[in-house]
């Protein structure tokens, strides 16, 4: 990263709002979400399924229109200018999707899948194209012999590596990684995480890393946004959020991760209930119905966001550092 002192904001998301109208009512998927990603950093977006993580990704990419708010990439507001959005989708924002079974065309050979962006964006042809494909495949741990195969001949892990190679082909400044390692084996996951880190330091890439695996988040990210039912409930640096979480939901998430030490198995805590339906979100704090610290106030009033040394959280009864 060349601008260590003052990293520029690569992506600024301001009050992004997205609702879906269904026959059962209006569903709020993203509720006035604001965050930024600086050049060369990794921001992680964590939360349970159904909290709106992936909707954020699709809105950023313009795969879905958002209701209101701003998405600013390098000073250009994508939502105001649909042309900018179309171009940005190609060059500035790359994406690695969650499900490599759905994101690769089953009728295309691997070399064609990776060649497509190279041909359209960089006009590569012939030997050059061939070499770049081999290079990209080597980056993700695949060999030349895989070029002429079809996606069905690969395991889920290998397919995801192909998808990553395709995203890398665009040389985007910001990659949106939507649970990229969820389908990979641990040994492969480690390789991919290392690779992502290495690519970041070499090329100054930024990542928006969407994940529910907190350990990989801690490994890859510098900052974390914790989402619950469309809202960011806590945000801060990895150290702030993981070492001294202030929101009870973050604490619960951390306690749910099984430890690799069998002696600590009794520390595994379970949270009662399920994430409520976004069609019928609780009034007040969304987490209140499942929260061990909830009071009457939590069921009535939406908590205001508190900021302490860049550590943002929205809770009426935040956990104090002394309690930890």
């Amino acid at each position: 990263m060349s601008h260590l002192d003052q990293p520029a904001d690569l992506l600024v998301v301001n009050k992004l709002h997205k609702t879906f109208t269904t026959k059962n009512g209006v569903m709020t998927a993203i509720d006035n979400l604001s965050f930024d990603v600086k050049a060369g950093e990794t921001v992680a977006l964590v939360g349970e399924s159904g909290c709106g993580k992936s909707t954020v990704a699709t809105c950023l990419l313009g795969l879905q229109s958002s209701d209101s708010g701003e998405i600013v990439v390098e000073g250009r507001n994508l939502l105001a200018d649909s042309k900018a959005q179309g171009k940005s989708l190609g060059r500035d924002l790359g994406i690695v999707f969650q499900n490599p079974y759905a994101s690769l065309n089953p009728k295309m050979k691997i070399k064609a899948i990776i060649a497509e962006p190279l041909k359209t964006a960089f006009r590569l042809r012939g030997v050059e194209l061939q070499q770049r494909i081999i290079e990209l495949l080597a980056h993700v741990g695949l060999g030349e012999e895989h070029m002429d195969r079809y996606p069905h001949e690969f395991s889920g892990g290998q397919r995801q590596r192909i998808a990553i190679a395709r995203a890398l082909a665009m040389e985007s400044k910001l990659l949106i990684l939507d649970e990229p390692t969820a389908a990979l084996d641990v040994s492969v996951q480690a390789q991919v995480l290392q690779l992502l880190k290495q690519l970041q330091s070499e090329n100054g890439l930024s990542y928006l890393f969407i994940s529910h695996d907190l350990a990989t988040v801690e490994f890859l990210a510098q900052r974390v946004l914790v989402m619950y039912l469309g809202r960011i409930v806590e945000a801060g640096t990895v150290a702030q959020v993981f070492k001294s979480p202030r929101h009870p939901y973050t604490r619960t998430l951390l306690d749910s991760v099984p430890s690799i030490d069998p002696a600590r198995r009794d520390e595994l805590k379970t949270l009662g209930g399920e994430i409520p339906s976004p069609l019928n979100r609780p009034v007040g704090c969304h987490f209140a119905p499942r929260c061990p610290r909830a009071s009457d106030r939590c069921h009535k009033d939406v908590p205001q966001e508190i900021t302490e040394q860049g550590h943002r959280f929205s809770c009426h009864h935040p956990i104090n550092a002394a309690e930890e």
Partner: peptide, 14 residues
């Protein structure tokens, strides 16, 4: 190869 929670900066083996 498993990233462990709570270790902060760590290098992953693969």
């Amino acid at each position: 190869t498993v990233p462990k929670l709570g270790l902060g900066e760590q290098s992953l083996d693969f």
